[in-house]
Design a protein around this nucleic acid. Structure first.
Length: 97
DNA sequence: TAAGTGACGCGTG
DNA sequence: GCACGCGCCACTT
């Protein structure tokens, strides 16, 4: 993984306000050439205790991406006030920016 | 070296 | 809304 892009990705994730979410694709567009998949790859490789609000990253339609930590992600979002609908989706109103 | 594999996005039907 | 195909690109086999 390109080190510069990885740094940009993590920096952007760190800026997402509590109680808001953003998407892989939006983060990718804010970087200098990363793709949505690369954003996912960067988050996947994060070690435990990194402190980044990785749970605030969802897919373009507000769904929690299918990954090993999805359950934990849903709980963390709920705990910080992000409500999920009956189908486990975040309303577009929560999207940041 | 080639082929498979994703924490995705988007256009089509 | 759902299923498919394709682009994306670093990493693994």
């Amino acid at each position: 993984m390109n080190q510069l892009l990885r740094e940009q990705i993590l920096t952007i994730v760190a800026r997402v306000p509590k109680g808001r979410v953003t998407s892989y694709g939006r983060i990718a567009k804010m970087t200098d050439g990363a793709s949505a998949r690369m954003v996912g790859a960067a988050l996947r490789s994060l070690p435990d205790g990194h402190g980044l609000p990785w749970q605030r990253v969802v897919d373009a339609s507000g769904r929690i991406a299918d990954h090993p930590g999805a359950d934990r992600q849903r709980r963390l979002l709920r705990d910080e006030g992000v409500l999920l609908d009956s189908r486990g989706r975040v309303s577009v109103d929560y999207f940041w920016p």
